[in-house]
Amino acid sequence: MEKFTGKVWVLGDDIDTDIIIPTEYLALPTVEDMKQYGFSPLRPELAGQIHEGDIIVAGKNFGCGSSREQAPEIIKALKVKCVIAKSYARIFFRNSINNGLLLIENSEIQDAVKEGDEITVTLGECIEHNGRTYPVASLPDNLMDILRAGGLVKAMQQRNGLHS
């Protein structure tokens, strides 16, 4: 089972997609151009400080708001390993899976961690922090199939016989 350790950034409840990437930057040509503005209405410094493999820990209803798929794409472009939140908004959840961004649901870890702490995640099993273990559920098979393919584009490419 895949296992990884990362430094956490802690955000609150109802982190909406206008916070993750404001509308004014959506007409920039690529997600790479947009990513520096990630989370800027709430924490303008954050995008510049996130390092590859970091983990975002948040409260309930993460990704609420618009259907903009740039939201999970930007988190992925910032090389965040995964997001762990108490719950997710529906469209954001689908968009994340379709872009191969790993989401984990856990109701306790946000209250336990401080920003900068390290946590270890074992997929489908648990999160470890300061000697405590928090269980996590695994995703349904149809979603794991898309994640395993590397996102919906790759899954459709396989369907259309482009490459395996």
Partner: peptide, 30 residues
Amino acid sequence: GTDSHTTTYGCVGCFSSGIGYTEMASILGT
């Protein structure tokens, strides 16, 4: 629709919901 407020068409008894652009692309094909 590629917009979260696609829920609007429920006003006439239509099941409508917002999705992202990747998912829209797969519907366009399938």
